[in-house]
Amino acid sequence: MAENRKKILEMLADKKISVDDAYRLLSAIDSTESGQESTPKTETAGKVKPKYLRVTVLPDPEHEHSQNVDRVNVRVPMSLIRAGIKLTSLIPPEARDKVNGALREKGIGFDVRNMKPEDIEELIGALSDLEVDVVSAKGEKVKVFVE
């Protein structure tokens, strides 16, 4: 878009177009740009805030009605996750180092000291796109999603 503007200004400098034409072309570029910007904003506004994190483990459809299978259905409110993450700020500094060390040992380079309330909202917002769907060799279906 910046190139188009430059071209218009060059054409104006070369007197290939009039000032009015240049103004009209630049206005047209502006309206196109604002239209493109507004589209993702509308999508974000339309996004429903997730309320629950769901974890389900369903048996193989062939054995679904059998009593001899395991089933899991867990629904965790997002507010509980939010409150849980906020609790990390109450962890004493010496314990935080231990937590960080344990996470590093597991290969997770994450510092719990960097957790801020605004990050929590961003994290929960990002969870709305989460969907894990795993089918085991036994035919069990594991689903993790938000609703």
Binding site: Y52, D70, R71, V72, N73, V74, P77, L80
Partner: peptide, 9 residues
């Protein structure tokens, strides 16, 4: 925040 929690195993 516990309101809405459901565990069914």
């Amino acid at each position: 925040s516990l309101r809405g929690l459901k565990i069914d195993i």
